[in-house]
Design a protein around this nucleic acid. Structure first.
Lengths: 107, 107
DNA sequence: AACAAATATGAGCTTGAATTCATATGAAAA
DNA sequence: TTTTCATATGAATTCAAGCTCATATTTGTT
């Protein structure tokens, strides 16, 4: 198949984009409620520019959307994609990986 | 919630583990057929130790399993977890991210 | 128009993961 | 039991992602 490479690249980009604690925290927060950058910053106690960088990446892959509201820019989660994936990981942990968070990964 | 942190950590580890081209290629290959390290090496034209390192990580999160067969060790994919996730990403690309693989990510 | 608030961007630095290569381990065959 | 094949492991180096801080941009307010 010709576009198998393109698919793999897309998977790679996708996972790379999510392989980051800040972005995961953002996602966990936006799961509950859409927020502006400042609100996220206060809620997560993470510096603003750090969040903006992270959000730019997430937006690149359309994992979050943004809409302007006055000076603020409200970010919301692409729940259609994210929620089912998180759910699968939850199940995976229950089923196959109950010890994952206890033992530390060597590398 | 108390174990919200543990969940986020697990997501983070999970995605970090997959955020790697070699591992994605391994997964794409094992999706079709279980294989030994050498077979993977030949099929993917990737050096053996590189694969072993990658496989060790994947095994850590139980994304692949292995069973011994003579001198060989046959790796197989945890399809129950991986396949639905890949499917979601495929859908995501169709729906929300048709341009992702064309435009290059800045960072 | 000047100012303030909110967010984004860029560049240098830091850190950690991936690669590489040499070597160790294990399992079967001779 | 030595040799060979298959895989794993360790450590040094390389490379890229993320952080930080300073500054730019954008939008709204006075």
């Amino acid at each position: 198949m010709k576009n198998e490479r393109a698919k793999c690249d897309a998977y790679h980009i996708f996972f790379k984009n999510l392989a980051n604690g800040v972005k995961i925290d953002i996602i966990a927060t936006l799961k509950e409620k859409s927020m502006s950058v400042n609100e996220l910053s206060k809620s997560l106690k993470i510096e603003q520019s750090k969040l903006s960088h992270a959000l730019a990446n997430l937006r690149f892959c359309n994992l979050v959307m943004s809409k302007n509201s006055g000076k603020k820019r409200i970010y919301s989660l692409n729940k259609k994609t994210i929620l089912p994936i998180l759910k699968i990981i939850d199940k995976h942990r229950e089923r196959d990986c109950s010890g994952c968070e206890i033992k530390k990964q060597s590398n």
